[in-house]
Design a protein around this nucleic acid. Structure first.
Lengths: 347, 347
DNA sequence: GCCTATAAATGGAACGTTCCAATAAATCAA
DNA sequence: TTGATTTATTGGAACGTTCCATTTATAGGC
């Protein structure tokens, strides 16, 4: 069990009675080697417990089979779903995604990106941490490494983005609320340093305007994009003079928080206050009441990102089109009509 | 933007007017270099957009700063929580964890492990996929690479394990149910190819026996360790002649499924049927009703695993003690007294 | 039998680092 | 001044692969 100096292709060559070049060819599955020789070599590989040194190999041929996926919040189930989609397509292409978490910390993100690059990844799929500085990806672009953003975009960057149609999603959700008769609407959670925030808030505002809700009947409360943030948002809103009767939440986590806080006050989500989420994570349909949410097809987005990355690698380019994924509102039980106006659609 | 051939330490050396050795020394933060020289070098590094090639470096010094974390189910929030704990301790040690998902697929696991090893990781923290063959880690052990298992252990392996006290956790939960007056108990979810399953089921059985529940009043339903599995388990159980009134679930996901299925049948979890989960993921406290569950301190387990790994790496050993983490039952609202016997504790 | 064409296997240089041994420059003791 | 010591810097070999240019073995054509 003493860890002997690990075997190299030379050891295998000696063991199998061939040259190192032959071993190398076998490892690459070259057809130039006589089958019996290949067999002999493979046996030797097995016998000595050889492990391929990709670092050494990359020194020559410079094309690794790993890509890095850098995400800002591993505990958000949304990203797990997306990762699963990605993995599906990468697996069939023989490439392995390594996932690294930045926990929404730009400094950590810097470290993680550095490490990934040093490791010689073939490409990077990144959901940038909040507060990422504009120059954070300059090194990567300079190195000509393929990179795509998912979900979030940076203010003035030309890196391709794979993201859902946030504007339209928010528009749909808001229109739904208004259709239910609500006249005092809130937008809960998120913060203005995120481009996504402006997209979703923009959709909310435009829908309000287009459907005749005055700006002063509209309330925007920033907050953490978590359950905790949602709780805080609701407290703030209900403390106001003329509180809203419905809210579009920045994401499902916020929506869950809002529902929790409603319950705590003895209010019934859906009946006493309408709430709609964003992302439609799997939990949404299992909540009580089931959460109406904007479905963004996370797995599909992941697949898309993977495909774009694959294409970039193959065509050795660093450019790609943005991809804005279709969204749709899935209506469940968390948005009843406004009780006061009583003028909503039939539930 | 054309990706010029990437810079090496020789380019930097030329740029800064020093030798490659000097550059190497600067990169390693050696104190042997005159500060002004070091500064000059660092400037050159910045100017040419250099990225360190760790593969080449490892060729000589063979100690990378990355460890691989291989998990069987990325979508289980439990692992995300654990990963966060790990990251905390690794970060301060300057090592970067890369996470790879096997989606409970032994073949995928094989690929992922292979890739990680080839990449030259310093160690591996693995939660093995279901159905992992006994020999799956032979290569890794042969290579003398530090490896620890988390959560799951393999039948006849001497690889150190970091896991919660499953037996005791199940015992506590079962005793709680019995204390509430339940006399017909079920164990839901999981499958017998998992060692953890036997540990938890063992705790359940022993508690039943010790506290006077006859084996024939006991029901065991295997099933997927997911919400879906939980739903199926409940259906099966309620279809029986003399159904149970309470269930210990293999994990929280199963418990959520059971609660869902109860609701769907018009039964109220807690009041009409008691359910307790295992793991105590964050969702547990937010469910309706809040789920009573066995807390395993996932983040703490992650930290522990990371510490053990660090120690193994430093002492260049491949041996370590198992660590069985303390558990405790957190009682919430999902287990009322048995209505029929009416002999439980006061709720 | 010889020459050529094809198939199979090989040696050596190169890839980007580290580190040892060696050199060059600066400082000190006498 | 000279030799010894310390401080900075450097060249070169080594790490484990790939791949090109060769060599060697095998087969085919006449």
């Amino acid at each position: 069990m003493a860890s002997r100096p690990k075997a190299t292709i030379l050891d295998i060559a000696r063991e199998a009675g061939v040259s190192k070049s032959t071993v190398s060819l076998v490892l690459q599955g070259s057809g130039l080697i006589r089958p019996e020789t290949a067999l002999k070599v493979r046996k030797a590989i097995e016998d000595v417990g050889y492990v391929y040194n990709r670092g050494a190999a990359n020194l020559r041929k410079a094309h690794s089979n790993v890509i890095g996926m850098v995400i800002n919040d591993l505990t958000n189930p949304f990203f797990a779903e997306m990762a699963v989609g990605m993995e599906r397509v990468f697996q069939s292409a023989g490439i392995v995604p390594f996932i690294a978490n930045t926990a929404e910390n730009p400094v950590r993100q810097e470290e993680v990106l550095k490490s990934l690059m040093e490791q010689g990844v073939a490409g990077l799929i990144v959901s940038p941490a909040r507060g990422t500085t504009p120059g954070a990806f300059r090194r990567i672009e300079m190195a000509g490494l393929p990179i795509v953003f998912t979900m979030r975009r940076l203010p003035e960057s030309r890196i391709p983005v794979i993201a859902p149609d946030n504007h339209r999603g928010a528009w749909l959700a808001t229109a739904h609320l208004i259709g239910k008769g609500h006249r005092r609407l809130a937008f809960f959670g998120g913060s203005s340093d995120l481009v996504v925030y402006h997209e979703r808030l923009g959709g909310f505002r435009e829908a309000c305007e287009a459907l005749g809700i005055a700006k002063r009947d509209t309330l925007v409360v920033e907050g953490e994009t978590s359950r905790k943030g949602g709780i805080a948002c609701l407290e703030t809103a209900l403390a106001m003079a003329d509180p809203p009767t419905a809210a579009l939440c920045f994401n499902d986590a916020v929506a869950f928080g809002v529902m929790l806080a409603l319950r705590k006050r003895g209010l019934e989500p859906g009946a006493d206050f309408a709430v709609v989420g964003f992302d439609d994570v799997v939990e949404a349909q299992h909540y009580m009441p089931a959460l109406t949410s904007v479905a963004v097809d996370s797995a599909g987005l992941g697949e898309r990102a993977a495909h774009v990355m694959l294409k970039m690698i193959q065509s050795r380019t660093t450019r790609a089109e943005d991809h804005i994924g279709a969204v749709n509102l899935v209506v469940r039980d968390s948005c009843g009509p406004d009780r006061r106006t009583g003028m909503g659609d039939a539930a």
